[in-house]
Design a protein around this nucleic acid. Sequence first.
DNA 1: AACATGGTTCGATGAGGATCGAACTATTGT
DNA 2: ACAATAGTTCGATCCTCATCGAACCATGTT
Lengths: 113, 113
Amino acid sequence: MGANEYPMPSTGDIRLADVLHCLSDPSRVKILISLADGEFHRKTVDSFSLNVQKSTMSHHLRTMREAGLTETRMTGRDCDIRLRVADLDARFPGLIAALTSESAVNDLANDRS
Amino acid sequence: MGANEYPMPSTGDIRLADVLHCLSDPSRVKILISLADGEFHRKTVDSFSLNVQKSTMSHHLRTMREAGLTETRMTGRDCDIRLRVADLDARFPGLIAALTSESAVNDLANDRS
DNA sequence: AACATGGTTCGATGAGGATCGAACTATTGT
DNA sequence: ACAATAGTTCGATCCTCATCGAACCATGTT
């Protein structure tokens, strides 16, 4: 087995276009906000209360990882996921802070969708 | 003639989802960065060096205006456009600053597309 | 070994949207 | 009045992508 089955771009290779494209889907913004603390979270189908099938959830998390937003760590049968807060702040200072600020969270909460 | 032919949402009605969806297109991010100074800029087909037809340009600018990113002012046959820096910063503090920061501009410049 | 479980991958489907050219509107200039 | 110019709107086309279900894979459990 390889060292890490879940490849992600190095900090310097994170592209703004990829990040913004990734966040054009509201589901992924929700996930981002749920992971705002930068800690590892258990990844389940019903994590982040998205009401989607597990294949869709897998797709979203893969998209986020490949854009450089998250890191995925496999622990046996499960896996944990984490927002790359420090890397992202180094690459695009202030961006994640703004996207996970109170205003952003409130706005997302008021969404009818 | 009406007061303003170019409606835009009021500050409080700017939605994060709309802003992020709007910026999922790299062309619009380029426009955003070109307007970072918050001043009015003359809007032409070849403003912002995008290499698109005028109908496409019109589409992008309409999308940005409707998302609350820009304000359009008509002056006779031409029109001028401006980034709503203050409104956006009031609504989502730090977001525009991060998106128009040096890191963001450099990243966009390195884009091969 | 057999089974259950957590996730990924694949193929199909459907919706959204970027792009263009052409037609249209309105303003300026002659 | 006529022509030129700046932008918008419309319809068509094409491509991307979110979503799902089914098949698959790997790990854990009995």
